[in-house]
Write a protein that binds this DNA or RNA. Structure first.
Lengths: 462, 462
DNA sequence: AGATTTGTATCTTTACATTTC
DNA sequence: TGAAATGTAAAGATACAAATC
């Protein structure tokens, strides 16, 4: 038995050899998990290399590989060949963003959707309640949507550039629900999905829950970098890619049309499944001159296009349209049955009526006006020399220099009466030197309240 | 290199050695999957033992283990130590039961819920549409349900024996949605859940999609056998158990109160998470003298109790109540955010109003009457000497002697104009010698149509 | 630029548990 | 009843690929 003295060796983590029970790999993973969750190992900490730790514990290094893998699966750590293994930025906490339990706080965190327009929806609900065929909406029939509801959806997406038949669209219960369906339908645990380095935190949490690994890809002002995507695809098996082309959450970046074509080429070459979350299409198509079409049209056979109505029409009625290529159809329908059985035809009917009556467009133009005002107010408080990202975005991405402790910063601001989210929440992988805040503009009860919130923020950041 | 001639050896499956590419385990699994899906290997076929196939292919036997495991994960095969590895009963097909695409057929397959009562629901929708606070139902707030809606839910479940506070109940989008949330929240891919040998086929499909393995446990007329459960728990790591105590779908068995206590003891001892799908509580509590309480009350800290309203109140409004112990709360809420964000407060409000106005109870008694009539009709066609299972069940479990080809039987009957489901669809694991049909009584447009369907069935079975 | 560091993927070895006969 | 058949679980060996210095 080799006798080593590693006491002087600089290992960031030394599990208690005596605490190990068989199976070793499992025992090591548990100890590591504990130490991360208890905060003994801070995010970013480099763990001992597999071979070092193996020597220290008198084990084969692949046993450490196995233990590390278990923790990586849970999103606690991430590994880079050649560099080492590190504690993940959001290892010890859930980064899910929801409206649960916010009290006495101006909310610049959660991105709502200017709920002032819901009066119109209430009117339409009354209209739907008086329909002769109301009773027909209350059974198990048409699990993917009643034909006329699907037609209305296609109608709605027509100006975005989506044109498919009834067999390739389904109504589901909101965009997040669509993401859950897409991931469970089309991916296996352990699969890898490429995403922007900063991406939608509820997508990160969903992937974590389903044990799907995210591979962060760098971007520039036109969107994800195709050569970086290409590099990752060659390096390791990537199964899919998640993009929000019309307005990335949280960075507000819009993918340029030329960039869409470049990315599509890489995606096609490597047979990735594209999940295109186009929840902001209503703010972009017909508004931004560079907008030509969704990426779905470039890759119809290997894409899922998701168009939620929560941001554009009404957040409380959980309705989204899912559009997919024929090759993906069977699996997606299966997952819809498994996860939802169906989406309430009543909710879908209200959205349908809103679209067909033209009131949905009325809501959209009101929301756009509100977004314009909110963005104007934001620019007063935080002027920028050169505007970046979507001009009507419901949130902004504010670069901050200091205040590097993400959790502390969020807590400080909450104590001052506002809720905002630090960029670390949106990290799909490694930590980065640049730090930001995402400032939601669409969740306060009024524009005055928004001003108050921004004032507090500006004073705090000094 | 050993030179063998296995041509005379009786191996049920001999992959083409030359077709193998590295990695071998993956290549073997793909070939096996193809041969199962193409029907070359029928359900029940015994595959070559790991060591035999390894010798044949000049590989180590654990490489075959790995290949088999991959297929087992996908639900294509199952393995029994000592006996061998077999092609799964439902390997090559989806057994999901839905209403999609049924045409010109009397439906005795899908279990609907006597949709004749939906007129009452339509009335209540009109009442809800006139509420002053309608607009307040249309935002992102209260993702787990508005307090008064939760209270109504607790109210509804009071007579079933459920008594918890607001923090331990959430409103989700139907019972199947609750199952999806429970499985993603509380289990990992590869975990094992004990179920009845015959169980709800959409649960089987859901587990398959999430790579959760089901371990079938034998039952008798009082429910699952505790000593068999105990045996399996000792043999292999089991993480959870799925039960439908009030009326097992498809067998109509009700778990006796003494059996609930016996099972609870085993579940507690082995720290299983109990998923209790009590969708039929409304047919059982207060009706069946043996009913005392849900199993949740015996194991509150390690249970999820699911009470869907689709069968009892209205199928088209997707609302279910999820009740859980404190230890499970955090994970369940996380999964609710990940999968649903929230359930439409409009739908929840309609169910709430139905409960509070007393109309829900009116619906239930109508449905019970319809169920009584339907069961009476069924008994005329298929009399039984000694009644088994729930007397008011919405479906019956008919033992059949011949007609052993499940797919053929279903197809034959469809050609004769009725849809029914063969027991093989409900098998959570191995094949069994006994065969049944599940006959839904609650899906025809009228009781006359039910009679017509049963008549066709009776003639066919001779 | 090439050796070193570090992680990944696959296959093999070993020990063992259950069922069958 | 105990040897043989069969599957399971964990750990080790080998080859390799990318990043670092």
């Amino acid at each position: 038995m080799p006798v080593n003295s590693f006491d002087n060796y600089p290992m960031s983590w030394k599990p208690d050899k005596k605490a190990l029970k068989r199976p070793f790999y499992y025992s090591i993973a548990s100890l590591l998990e504990q130490d991360i969750i208890n905060g003994f190992l801070a995010p970013g900490t480099k763990l001992p290399p597999q071979r070092e730790l193996a020597d220290f514990l008198d084990l084969n290094f692949t046993t450490i590989t196995r233990a590390y893998k278990l923790c990586e699966f849970k999103g606690l750590i991430y590994a880079v060949t050649g560099s080492g293994t590190f504690v993940a930025p959001n290892a010890a906490r859930s980064i899910t963003i929801s409206t649960d339990k916010i009290t006495d706080c101006i909310d610049l965190g959660f991105v709502a959707s200017f709920e002032q327009t819901n009066g119109i929806v209430a009117e339409i609900i009354q209209k739907v309640a008086d329909k002769r065929y109301l009773e027909k909406l209350l059974n198990y029939n048409d699990p993917t949507g009643i034909p006329h509801q699907k037609t209305a959806g296609l109608n709605w997406m027509d100006s975005f550039g989506i044109h498919v038949d009834q067999e390739h669209i389904a109504i589901v219960s909101g965009a997040q629900n669509a993401l859950a369906i897409a991931l469970t339908a089309l991916f296996e645990p352990g699969n890898r999905i490429a995403t922007d380095l900063y991406t939608y935190s509820n997508f990160i949490e969903l992937a974590k829950m389903l044990n799907i690994q995210l591979v962060p890809i760098p971007s520039d002002q036109f969107g994800m970098l195709p050569n970086e995507l290409e590099k990752q695809c060659c390096q390791t098996k990537i199964h899919g890619i998640f993009l929000m082309p019309s307005c990335c959450n949280p960075t507000t970046v819009m993918i340029s049309d030329f960039r869409k074509h470049e990315l599509a080429m890489v995606i096609r070459k490597h047979h990735l499944i594209l999940i295109e979350d186009d929840i902001h299409a209503f703010l972009t198509a017909g508004m931004i001159s560079d907008y030509q079409q969704p990426m779905f049209n470039l890759l119809p056979e290997q894409s899922v296009y998701i168009c939620g109505t929560s941001k554009s029409i009404c957040s409380g009625l959980r309705v989204a349209y899912m559009v997919y290529g024929d090759a993906l159809r069977k699996n997606i329908l299966q997952s819809i049955f498994n996860v939802n059985v169906k989406t309430s035809s009543l909710d879908a009917e209200v959205i349908t009526e809103l679209i067909l009556s033209g009131r949905a467009h009325e809501i959209v133009s009101q929301k756009k006006q509100l977004a314009q005002s909110a963005n104007d107010i934001y620019t007063e408080y935080f002027p920028v020399s050169k505007p970046v990202g979507h001009p009507l975005s419901f949130y902004r991405w504010l670069s901050i220099q200091e205040h590097h402790d993400a959790v502390q910063l969020e807590t400080d601001l909450k104590m001052r009466g506002i809720r905002v989210f630090h960029s670390d929440r949106f990290l799909s992988g490694q930590t980065t030197p640049n730090k930001y805040l995402r400032i939601a503009l669409s969740s306060t009860n009024s524009l005055d309240e928004l001003k108050m919130g921004l004032e507090i923020l500006k004073q705090y950041l000094g």
